[in-house]
Design a protein around this nucleic acid. Sequence first.
DNA 1: ACACCTTTTGAGGGTCACTGCCATTTGGCA
DNA 2: TGCCAAATGGCAGTGACCCTCAAAAGGTGT
Lengths: 220, 220
Amino acid sequence: MARGAADCPTMTTMPATPPLPFEQHQRPMGLRERKKLKTRIAIRKATYRLIAEQGYDATTIEQIAAAAEVSPSTVFRYFPTKEDIVLTDEYDPVMEAALRARPGDEPPLESLRAVLTGAVASILEKEPEEMGRRTRLMLEVPALRARMTETMAETSSLLARPIADRAGREPDDPEVRVFTAAVMGALREALFHWGERGRQDDLVALVDRTLDVLKGGLRL
Amino acid sequence: MARGAADCPTMTTMPATPPLPFEQHQRPMGLRERKKLKTRIAIRKATYRLIAEQGYDATTIEQIAAAAEVSPSTVFRYFPTKEDIVLTDEYDPVMEAALRARPGDEPPLESLRAVLTGAVASILEKEPEEMGRRTRLMLEVPALRARMTETMAETSSLLARPIADRAGREPDDPEVRVFTAAVMGALREALFHWGERGRQDDLVALVDRTLDVLKGGLRL
DNA sequence: ACACCTTTTGAGGGTCACTGCCATTTGGCA
DNA sequence: TGCCAAATGGCAGTGACCCTCAAAAGGTGT
């Protein structure tokens, strides 16, 4: 299991997120940072390749390190757990910002709908094959599915803050928490359904549909 | 992480669940089964005691085995992972049965409400201190929180079947999945909130409130 | 170009959950 | 009483992850 998601310098040191989804961060960026990004990407690539060849469980950190030409220690410095190499998700802060940027009089559910569908559409457009790989793995490997679920729970409490602010409540208000948890759960189920269907459907439309279920008060 | 939740004879062999929440299974039960139940309980008790003394992470399987006077192998034969010793949850099949027993014309959300509040009330009445311990640990130990979340996702897809049947849909219908996922998410958040508040509030009422949020279409 | 400081890296040793395998014991039963 | 299947214990892995320390490399001022 994820023993301790220790501090990994790369994550805390870097401006925010390397392959930033929407905007760009074009500050000079010295050789040092460029190298770090390269290493990070190399580890990722090596991981995906090895997993494609041998499967997730059969792929060891040692192999990944060798393939990426770094030491095992370095792999752990870049990613706190093996699962995170596959799943690392840089979109949380972006989504929070996007959420805050929404008009204040918009119903919260609609704000979240806009943010989520926007994010999904953006990822789907920029890195479609990466998205496919990740989703497939999430479905196949229990450890990754679990980690993903956990990540979404974290995202849920992250989004609770702006939602609570807007509704004039506390972020730990049970109603606020259920709100974000339900929305993230809907996203999760949409993603899984999409993956199980071979990723042919329109994921954005699926997300929209699932959010409609919530909006309708879970009438079936 | 939970490497492989292999088959553990105890779980598959036993009638269903040893400390069955509502009903009882009073079939004869030979010496063999009685002994197994004893061992199971001994492992559990030892685990709780050791964790109370030293914390979850500091407690090793070896210590647990020694305290329960069995071998480490035996511990793993009874519980697939360390997390499961703390969290094992025997209520799923009971809940599914209770759900199926609900009147067919009842709105699905209300059926689930009845089943969940009933289950919570029952546990709270029969094993209050056990419930307290588990909830506290769930909040404190990330590994346990993660495992719990995963468990609830599984319960969610378990409940999807009866719900789908009733609604005349497929269990993997995205709307059905969102439905149960949202409900289980609400339960989770209610539980967490309860735990964070020192377990003083009325948990059943909390669950009710969170389900109302869902019923209202997530208007905040 | 050189020394100086900080960050990054590699190496090695250790822990512990978890897996198989196999020999032994033990309850259940003819 | 003797046989079979289930349950147990012991043992030897495997692999993720932690910790610490010394070497290497980037960045900066002279």
